[in-house]
Design a protein around this nucleic acid. Structure first.
Lengths: 197, 197, 197, 197
DNA sequence: AATGAATGAGTGTTCATTCAT
DNA sequence: AATGAATGAACACTCATTCAT
C-alpha cells in the first residue's frame, strides 16, 4: 500500500497518536481514541497505518530525523565553535527536550520497556550517535581551550542522562519553563562554572 | 492492612508485580502473568491485593519508605558533614538509582503518564522532599566551605534530573556498572571538579 | 436511542434477552447465551446494548408501552362502556397476562427483588396507572348500574393481584389455556356472579 | 453426614439464606454474604449444608411442612365448618401469605424459573394439595348451604392465584398491611358478597 | 478513500468449593 | 466443629482487526 492518500489526515492521525501514546501508553491508547482525537473516523486510521503497531513505530522513529538534521548541521560548524556557540547549543538542546513533551514521553516510555518494543533499536542507535556528537564537541572544546580537561565519554553519558532526566525531575507544569536553571547545571557537566553574582 | 495471611506470598506477589509492571507497563501486565511469576495461583493474587490497581499502588509507593529512611538518617548526620561524606552520599544515591532497576522503571513509568496514575501525588511529594534534602546539604556545604557558591534550588533540580536520567541514557546492560563515570558527573553538578590525571 | 445500525439484530437480541432473563434470571443468563439464542456473535450484543444491565432495562420497560396504549384506547371508549365491554376487557387482560409469559416472568422477577433492580420504579408507576384505570372503570360501571357497589380501590388491588398471580398458581403448561375458568373468577372480583347451569 | 452439630447455627444459616435468596435471587447471593448475615464464619456454612444448592433446597422445601400441618388441622375441623370459620380461614391464609414475605418471594422465584430449579416439583405437589383442600372446603360449604354454587376447581385456581398475586400487586411497604381489603376480595372469589354500608 | 458493524480473543474479577490447620 | 487461604472455572466487557458498503 503506497501512501498517495491525504497527507493531512495522515499527519492528524500521527499527531493524535503521539499525544495519546505519550499520555496513556501503548495498550491503554485505543484506535477509537486516536480517531476521535484526530477528527477522523474509526476505520480511517487503518487506511493510513497498517495497524496500531505501525502507527506507534512511526510515532517513535519519525521525529528522530529532525534531531539528526540538527546534529548534521552542528557538525559542519564545529570547526568554528566557541564557548558562546556551545552555550547556545546547550540552550537549544534543553529547549528541544523541554518542548517536545509528547515525543520525549514516548521515547522514555520505550526506553523504559526495552524488551517489549523493538523500536528500542532505533533509539539505541540514535543515543549512540548523540553521544559521539557530544564527544566530538568535547574534544573540539578541549583542543581550542574553552573546555577544561574531562573524559569525553563520561561527559557524554552524563549530559544525555541529564537531558533525559529533566522532564522527570518535576511534574507540575509551573516549573516547566525554568530553562535557565537547567542550563547552568548542564554547563557544569561540561566543566563550565558560571560565576554567581 | 494488617491481614494475617502469609506475608511471604504477599511479598512474592509484590516482587512479581514490580518486575512485570517495570518490564511491560500496567495494562500489558496481566494478573495471570504476575501469578505465574510469583509462583502462586491466579486467584491468590486477589487474596492479598484487592485488585490490580491496589497492587500497582503498592509497587509504586511502598518502596519510597526505604529512601525516606535514608534521608532521615542522613539529616541527623548533616552537622558533621564533610566533602568525603558528601561524595559517599552521592555514590550511595547513584548505586540506589542504578540497582533498583525495576523500581526506578516503575517510577518513571508513572511520572511519564501523570494524568493517568493518581500515584503521581506520592511521587511528587517525595521529589519535593528529596530536593529540599539536597538544598539543605548544599547550604551546609557552602557554610562549611567545601562547596562553591551555587543556587541550591538549581542544583537540587539538576541533581534529581541527573539521577532520574542515568538509567535512560543507555539501554545495554553492559554499561550499567559505570557508576564511577556518573559519580564524577554528579559531583560536577555540585560544583566539584575532579582533577584529571 | 436512534442508532442507525440494524434494527433487526437489535430486536433479535431483545427477544433472546427477554426469553433467557425470564427463564434463568438476571445473573444466570450470560451474554454468551443471549448471543447464541439471538444468532449473533458475542460482541454484537454490545454493539446494540451498552451492557447487560441496559439490555435488561430494555426488556423490563419497553413492553410496558404496549399495555399503556391499550389503557389509553380503553379510556377513550369508557363513556360507552357496558357489561359486555367490561367482560371483553377482562378477557383481554387475562389473555395478555397468560400469553406474554416471558415478559410477565421478567416483571415478577423484578417485583420479587425490588431492592435489587432500579427498574422497579417504572413498574411501580405502571401498577399505579393500571389500578387507577380499573378504579375509573369501577366508578363508570357503578354509575351506569351494571356493577354492584364496591370499594374501587379494593377491587383494583384485588384484580391486579389476581392477574399477577394467575401464572403462579400452576406450573404445568397443560393448564395454561384455562382462560375461561380464570375469567369467571376475575368477574367475581368485580362483584359479577356468573350463573352456573 | 448426620446433623448432630449445633442446631442453632444451622437455623441462623437457614434464616440468613432465606432472607438473602429472597432479596437477591440464587446466583447473586454468595456464601460469604450468607455467612456474614448469619454471624458465622465462611467455612461454617459448609459444615451445616453440603453446598449452596442444598441450602437453597432446604429454604424452599422445609417451610412447606408448617402449612401442610395447617391444612391437616383444618381438614379435621371441616365437618363443623361454618361461614365464620371460612372467613377466619381466609384471613389466616392472607396473613400467612402477607407475613412470610421472604419465604413467599423464594417460592415465587422458583415458580418463575421452573426449568431451572428442581425444587419446583415439591412446590407443584404442594399447590396440588392446597387446591384439593380448597375444593373440599367448597364442597363442604355448598353442601351446608353457606356457599353459592360454583365450580370448585375454578375457585381453587382463582383463590391460589389471588393469594400468590397479592404481594406482587404493590411494592411499597406502606400498603403491606391492607389485609382487610384483600380479605373482601378473596371472599368474592368464593362467591361471598360483603354488604357495603 | 472512508466508514463503522461484526467478530472473538483476551482481560480483570468473582465466588463455590476444597482442605490443612 | 470451626476457620479462611488457595484455587481456577466462568463471567462481563474491551478492543484490534476485518470487510461489506
Amino acid at each position: 500500500m503506497a501512501k498517495p492518500k491525504s497527507n493531512q489526515k495522515r499527519e492528524q492521525i500521527f499527531q493524535a497518536g503521539l499525544k495519546l501514546f505519550a499520555e496513556n501508553g501503548y495498550t491503554k491508547t485505543t484506535i477509537k481514541d486516536i480517531a476521535q482525537e484526530a477528527g477522523v473516523s474509526f476505520g480511517t486510521v487503518f487506511t493510513y497505518y497498517e495497524n496500531k503497531a505501525a502507527l506507534f513505530r512511526t510515532c517513535v522513529t519519525a521525529p528522530l530525523r529532525e534531531f539528526k538534521n540538527h546534529m548534521h548541521d552542528a557538525r559542519e560548524e564545529m570547526p568554528s565553535m566557541t564557548l558562546t556557540t556551545l552555550k547556545n547549543l546547550v540552550k537549544q538542546h534543553i529547549s528541544f527536550f523541554m518542548e517536545r513533551e509528547h515525543y520525549l514521553r514516548v521515547i522514555q516510555y520505550v526506553i523504559g520497556q526495552p524488551e517489549r518494543f523493538s523500536e528500542i533499536e532505533a533509539l539505541d542507535e540514535f543515543a549512540d550517535e548523540f553521544r559521539h556528537f557530544i564527544q566530538d564537541i568535547m574534544r573540539t572544546g578541549m583542543d581550542k581551550g574553552f573546555l577544561p580537561k574531562s573524559d569525553p565519554e563520561e561527559v557524554s553519558y552524563g549530559y544525555l542522562a541529564f537531558l533525559m532526566g529533566m522532564r522527570l525531575s518535576f511534574t507540575d507544569q509551573a516549573k516547566a519553563h525554568q530553562t535557565s536553571a537547567f542550563k547552568n547545571q548542564a554547563l557544569r557537566l561540561f566543566g563550565i562554572q558560571e560565576v554567581l553574582q
